[in-house]
């Protein structure tokens, strides 16, 4: 999974479980502090925190929660923060549609995935019907 950007040299900073609405707030604050921790600039801290918040809400609304892994390490030779969100939800039926602006199945405004993608440097997604969805966000420092 995600072969191009999986690197053994990444170090795990944190691993969190998303179950409740409060976890959305708690985990996005954690992301912010890790972004700060690797000396990311204030705008990029805000971008990655906001992108993760969008994904967490998707996971909470559509998949009953999931897991978030926070790592740091080199991506294409540059230091990055790598956030991997995975759930065991229904999967995304039409990925192309879900990635287009304004598309929503009803619970949101449809900014979640395409918005999150615009806020990070690399965005990877894998989804399988009835198995779940994994999204990886990469933001260079």
């Amino acid at each position: 999974m995600f072969e191009q950007t999986t690197d053994k040299n990444w170090s795990l900073l944190d691993k969190q479980v998303l179950e409740t609405e409060y976890d959305i707030v708690r985990i996005r604050q954690l992301i912010r502090s890790h972004a700060k921790g690797i000396q990311m600039g204030i705008v990029d801290q805000t971008r990655i925190t906001t992108a993760v918040s969008e994904l967490l809400r998707n996971m909470y609304n559509y998949a009953n929660g999931g897991e978030v892994q926070i790592e740091t390490g080199p991506v294409e030779g540059k230091m990055a923060l790598i956030i991997t969100c995975s759930d065991h939800g229904p999967g995304i039926e039409n990925l192309e549609m879900a990635m287009s602006d304004g598309y929503t199945t009803g619970m949101g405004l449809g900014y979640g995935l395409p918005g999150a993608k615009r806020l990070v440097d690399k965005f990877e997604i894998e989804t399988q019907k009835d198995k779940g969805t994994t999204v990886r966000l990469i933001k260079w420092r």
């Binding site: 705008v43 805000t46 602006d101 405004l109 900014y111 395409p114 918005g115």
Partner: peptide, 14 residues
């Protein structure tokens, strides 16, 4: 609104 928040909101497309 903080500048970083304004930038992010625009990029988010909202």
């Amino acid at each position: 609104m903080q500048p970083a928040v304004a930038i992010t909101l625009v990029e988010l497309g909202l």
